[in-house]
């Protein structure tokens, strides 16, 4: 945190009574060639300041739509979306999205990308650079501050996107499957660091993912979305201590329960998308060695 700077989130923390974010009966339709498509319906959610929420759900369940509504990039067709008790009217820098494809700007260097939002906000050059450096330090990328975006690896780009969002000092961080394209090891490291950063900055985070174990690892609360229409099917409150690691045995209990909820949804989607003869493989016998073609010679 920059000295002498009181973030809106700190002020908000003093007004505990009002939830940081609340969604009331949110619905959203999309119009496609085949007709009206109900993306999300009757979403109700209250998020406390500083809470870490994970959303899991099958593809097409409207997770991203919900994020976009919170970000103010899309308008709900029905219901109210409130931040600190005031309705969301369009995008605001108090709610920043880290997009799935990151959306870093290739014409800017790493530090200029991090400074982007600050420049728009009219922050002076000196302060901009200081803050960019501060957050690049937080994600351990100061050595690459003058690099071009295309020179970075996937994990490094992820860090830049995180620094860019944090530099603007939002209250709410909306992360849309940010680690989906990374390898497992890089993801592990980022899970740990994200938890650290979350603790250090006290942001409210809403994190969308496909990965149940990732959700169990990161979230204070995990929401399982159902599809057609997208809605909240089940919520899990996770009581595990932090910092957590994705392999923690304590988390497995939760992950299993979440997965059970999710699996039913994923199968429902598969049934709609695939041929009629498709069915889940429930009890497949263990493969014999010679089925696997391991070159055993038999």
């Amino acid at each position: 945190m920059i000295p002498g700077y009181t973030s809106p989130s700190m002020q908000a923390a003093q007004r505990q009574a009002i939830p940081k974010l609340s969604l009331k009966h949110i619905s959203k339709n999309f119009h496609t060639k085949t007709g009206k498509f109900n993306a999300v319906e009757d979403i109700n959610l209250e998020v406390k300041a500083g809470e870490f929420i994970c959303i899991v759900g099958p593809s097409g369940c409207g997770k991203t739509t919900v994020l976009n509504i919170i970000a103010g990039l899309e308008k709900p067709d029905g219901g109210d979306a409130l931040v600190d008790g005031t309705p969301i009217k369009g995008p605001g820098t108090d709610r920043l999205v880290i997009f799935q494809d990151l959306a870093l700007f290739p014409w800017l260097t790493v530090s200029k990308n991090v400074e982007f939002g600050l420049r728009l906000a009219g922050v002076s050059k000196k302060e901009r650079q200081e803050r960019a450096m501060h957050f690049l330090k937080m994600v351990h990328l100061t050595r690459f501050s003058n690099s071009c975006i295309h020179e970075l690896s996937g994990g490094m780009k992820q860090r830049v996107a995180l620094a860019r969002a944090l530099a603007i000092n939002p209250d709410i961080l909306l992360m849309d499957e940010p680690f989906a394209a990374l390898d497992a090891q890089t993801r592990d490291i980022l899970h740990e660091e994200l938890q650290e950063i979350w603790v250090a900055t006290k942001k409210t985070i809403i994190f969308v993912t496909h990965n149940v174990r990732e959700a169990a690892c990161l979230g204070d609360r995990v929401l399982v979305f159902a599809t057609h229409p997208g809605r909240i099917k089940q919520q899990f409150q996770l009581m595990c201590t932090r910092p957590r690691h994705i392999e923690d045995p304590g988390l497995m209990v939760y992950a299993k329960a979440i997965l059970a909820e999710l699996k039913a949804e994923v199968e429902k989607v598969a049934k709609e998308e695939l041929d009629y003869d498709w069915r889940t493989v429930t009890k497949k016998p263990v493969l014999r060695l010679d089925d696997r073609n391991l070159g055993s010679g038999t």
Binding site: L73, T93, F99, D101, A103, F105, G117, L120, I168
Partner: peptide
């Protein structure tokens, strides 16, 4: 790419 426009809008452009 619309994504860049959304990102810009999101950051206050």
């Amino acid at each position: 790419p619309p994504l860049w426009l959304r990102a810009g809008r999101n950051m206050g452009a």
